[in-house]
Simulated scan of single mutants.
Amino acid sequence: MDIRQQRKLDHIRQALSLEEGPLPNGFKDVRLIHEALPSLDSRDIDISIPFLGKTLTMPLLINAITGGTPQVTDINRRLARIAAKAGIGIAVGSQAAALRDPAMRESYQVVREENPNGIVIANVNPNTPVDQAIKAIEMIQADALQVHLNVAQEMAMTEGDRDFRHWPENLAELVRHCPVPVIAKEVGNGVSFETAQRLMELGVRCIDVGGAGGTNFIAIEMRRRGLASQEFEAWGISSAATLAEVVWSGCRTLPSDERLTIIASGGIRNGWEAAKALSLGANATAVAGSVLKHLLSSSDGEQSVEKYIEEYRQALIVSLTLTNSSNLDTFAQRPCLILGELKEWLEQRCIPLAFWTQRNKENPVY
């Protein structure tokens, strides 16, 4: 087994053993406003969304987890089976291993085999040439391509990349030439307003914010080296803060006839936090660590994940009911409050709180 295959297995083992954080995801500082006199039937609430030309039953993706070694093929097979049954999307882990070694392709291809009609997302690094990225897409008949932005993880790895000079220009080439939409995805340290603006200038129209507060790849890589660094492991922007920054950046940067699709990820643990992310402006949410732990830490792993997804769904429905929202478009117009550290962050970043707190009022910001 080469170092890359061993790293895949180390990632799974460490993700199961390490706690999330140390930074909080920030959603405790987002408060939804209760409606005591709703005018709807909660059984009629629609939480489905159009996404990548298909329909998801709810705004949820199983985010990139693994692939690239035979030992994890069954994980991807089971996750894809769950995604197909639930009607949600799924992304595979980095396909670099399969692009180097065709013998590794099965660990990714099982996802499309088990989920022939659903949304499946490919995954490559920002240095991947266009022809190789297209092979990754074709490998799983992908509906989109994630390009993972993992500079902090690379810096934490002894064997990690150190030269990032060509990331922007190559990402622009991928956006220009790939036959499916490109999703710029952070892996746990967040995307700032300025970075989101640069991504949009490169042609990116979908960003997975991947904020701090969930699976911590810096901590995982440090543990692989037998090290720990509280300062380094606390690097990044919380998921709630990065989501707000990217939402505001999209509104400020793109013309009125264009839209930035935003996926909220990074320590979103349940449908209650997902509702807060959607209220802040996310179009969809994505989870990875919680799903992996349910799958591998329980004797009835698939049933445990299915129960988790159903609880996620029900929390979203209750959240919409309690804000008198018949669907997610209506919910997105409801005001929310921003408190505590998140409020301080946005104020120091000169991002107006009125954008969220004064919806449905005469407000020139919104």
Score class of each variant (00 low, 15 high):
Glu154Met: 12
Gly68Cys: 08
Pro50Ala: 09
Lys343Phe: 11
Leu292Gln: 07
Ile134His: 03
Leu278Met: 15
Glu159Ser: 00
Leu328Phe: 11
Ser298Asp: 15
Gly210Val: 11
Ile338Trp: 01
Arg81Ile: 00
Ile207Tyr: 08
Asn170Trp: 06
Gly188Val: 10
Gly160Tyr: 12
Phe164Met: 15
Ala315Phe: 03
Val246Ile: 12
Arg334Gly: 07
Pro181Gly: 03
Gly53His: 04
Gly266Cys: 12
Asp29His: 05
Arg252Val: 03
Ala282Leu: 02
Val318Met: 13
Thr57Gln: 10
Thr128Cys: 13
Arg77Tyr: 00
Ser279His: 02
Leu295His: 09
Asp208Leu: 04
Ile88Ser: 04
Leu280Cys: 00
Gly289Trp: 07
Arg81His: 08
Ala91Asp: 11
Leu79Ile: 12
His11Ile: 09
Asn270Ala: 00
Asp163Val: 11
Arg162Asp: 00
Arg225Ile: 07
Leu149Glu: 02
Cys178Gly: 01
Phe164Asp: 15
Arg165Tyr: 04
Tyr366Cys: 15
Gly211Gln: 12
Ser319Phe: 09
Glu221Lys: 07
Leu295Val: 12
Pro22Asp: 09
Thr357Ala: 03
Gln132Ala: 10
Gly236Val: 12
Glu169Lys: 10
Gly160Val: 13
Asp2Pro: 00
Arg359Met: 13
Leu254Lys: 01
Thr330Glu: 14
Val175Trp: 02
Asp46Gly: 03
Pro70Ala: 05
Glu194Gln: 01
Leu322Lys: 10
Ala103Phe: 14
Thr55Tyr: 06
Glu311Lys: 07
Ala84His: 11
Gly281Asn: 01
Gln303Ile: 06
Ile65Asp: 02
Thr66Cys: 03
Gly118His: 08
Leu40Asn: 03
Asn25Gln: 05
Gln71Gly: 03
Leu171Trp: 05
Ser229Met: 02
Gly281Pro: 05
Arg224Trp: 09
Ser249Thr: 13
Ala96Met: 09
His294Gln: 11
Arg78Thr: 01
Ile140Met: 08
Lys135Ile: 06
Arg7Glu: 00
Ser299Val: 04
Asn127Val: 11
Ile119Pro: 01
Val124Trp: 07
Gly266Lys: 12
Ala80Thr: 02
Arg225Glu: 04
Val318Ile: 15
Val130Trp: 14
Ser239Cys: 01
Cys336Leu: 15
Ile220Cys: 01
Ala212Gly: 08
Asp163Gln: 06
Ala172Met: 13
Asn170Lys: 06
Ala234Arg: 14
Ala219Trp: 04
Phe193Ala: 13
Gln333Leu: 14
Arg334Trp: 02
Gly211Ile: 15
Ser265Ile: 09
Ser229Pro: 02
Leu37Pro: 00
Pro352Leu: 10
Arg252Ile: 01
Asn150Asp: 10
Arg31Ile: 05
Phe51Cys: 14
Gly226Asp: 07
